[in-house]
Design a protein around this nucleic acid. Sequence first.
DNA 1: AAAAATCAGTTGCATATGCCTTGAATATAT
DNA 2: ATATATTCAAGGCATATGCAACTGATTTTT
Lengths: 153, 153
Amino acid sequence: MATNPGPCNNAAIRQAARMLGQLYDDALAPSGLRGTQYTLLYVIQEMNAPTLREMADQLVMDLSALGRSLKPLERDGLVAIVADPNDGRAKRATLTKAGSKTLKRALELWRDAQDRFEKAFGTKRAEELRSVLESLSSREFREAFQNGAALRK
Amino acid sequence: MATNPGPCNNAAIRQAARMLGQLYDDALAPSGLRGTQYTLLYVIQEMNAPTLREMADQLVMDLSALGRSLKPLERDGLVAIVADPNDGRAKRATLTKAGSKTLKRALELWRDAQDRFEKAFGTKRAEELRSVLESLSSREFREAFQNGAALRK
DNA sequence: AAAAATCAGTTGCATATGCCTTGAATATAT
DNA sequence: ATATATTCAAGGCATATGCAACTGATTTTT
């Protein structure tokens, strides 16, 4: 039974995130990227030069936090932040050649980690995990929680 | 379908943790505690003056990270770190009177948040969530992942 | 008992994140 | 066309976390 932080959903997810974060960080280490950085590069490629705002929304993260997280990647020449030609306020994140290359390399490591995850956790459970996490990250859930109301599916 | 950070388990759990963290932080705000701090106080009470090492193990977190997280609580007089009488190396975390009081107050806020969570997320789903998170945090899973093997259990 | 291996915490260094404020640019309302 | 509101990003400030190096204390070897 352990003195688990109570069945606190928040504590539980943070703990699991810390744990998994380390495993993925280790797996990606050869690429020089941390798990979070891999995600950033991936999203930049996927969204094709998104503005920081768009990226932050996509990742459900604070804009300033995102900006800071990109700094190390910029410094290391993997990401370039360029002004948006149509909106003087916006800036877009793009992958440099080195960034694309690093991402490509990291993708392989990531895939391997993902595979090991499925194997160790079980396909069924993994499916279940992603499913609940997706619900958690949804706007619907947040609103339902804030309203103290039930999730209307 | 959105450009979800790929079905990356790591990215997904971090995202969900960020989201939920904010909701719990908001809920606990009246007590002056962040979600993580609430957890620390709770664990200290639950484990009854644990050494930092014991706490760190329980929370599956880095010892130095724990030590630093306790600093603000110490500074604010909610937690006191005392030397272990039997082991010159160890230190134990204890709640001060103010700490207990704050925790008690926070507990109510937490319970409310937890309730809203169940209601918004659904009891069944909540159950599912805690179940997968617990598996994730287990030593067995970590080892299985690292060995690239399947979880024998 | 002396030397060697371990263990608990601390500190330096670095990333991850969030909130609030500020400045510049754009969009809206009048 | 102006004044006003909104939006994007940056900066200051603070917590959350991890790793590696280091010190002091305890345990294990020899």
